[in-house]
């Protein structure tokens, strides 16, 4: 992931053309057009993908994170966009560090980001700045730690909280 080429993908070439500073690296391995972008520009990129004619990615189908323990920046937040009108997909990735796992939220642009950002926050501890209701979604509030981080032991126990009323 060091090249900044469009790899024959019209989506990537549009992206490189419109926001050359935001795109850090691209690849199109296995046919998935992928761009790694500057986390500060993620809203700009998403806006372009949604609104520019010829791109029209109406859907943010998936949002997740990957923990590359030992690398810096440690977390990679992965967005999958899908355009129903043009039947094309693109994957956008942004790396955030362990010290400051913060990223602008996409909720104002894509409503589907709401629950998925909460899930990433819940399981990885990445904070989405500007999210209207960033709290745990799959786990309970008293849960300690973020279980999908690679340094969270699979057999770790959690405090018992008893029934809530």
């Amino acid at each position: 992931m060091t090249t900044r080429d469009d790899h024959g993908s019209p989506v990537l070439s549009r992206l490189l053309e419109a926001l050359p500073a935001a795109v850090l690296a691209t690849h199109a391995r296995l046919g998935d057009a992928t761009a790694r972008v500057d986390p500060a520009c993620i809203v700009e990129v998403a806006k372009l993908l949604r609104d520019a004619s010829g791109l029209e990615f109406e859907m943010l189908t998936d949002l997740t994170a990957v923990d590359y323990l030992g690398e810096e920046p440690r977390f990679e937040v992965v967005y999958h966009f899908y355009s129903v009108a043009r039947n094309q997909r693109v994957r956008i990735k942004a790396r955030v560090s362990e010290a400051e796992p913060r990223l602008p939220s996409l909720v104002p642009l894509y409503a589907s980001a709401d629950w998925m950002e909460r899930e990433v926050f819940d399981l990885y501890g990445v904070r989405f700045v500007g999210h209207p209701n960033l709290k745990r979604i799959l786990l309970y509030d008293e849960f300690e730690g973020h279980p999908l981080r690679k340094d969270y032991a699979k057999a770790a126990r959690q405090p018992l909280i008893g029934p809530r009323n």
Partner: peptide, 24 residues
């Protein structure tokens, strides 16, 4: 969405669950 580091253990197995997203 799968990520592999070339070993026999997956680095990431993400399931994009339609139920979860349709419920939102």
């Amino acid at each position: 969405y799968l990520v592999s580091d070339g070993s026999e253990v997956p680095t990431k197995v993400r399931c994009r669950p339609p139920s979860f997203i349709n419920l939102a």
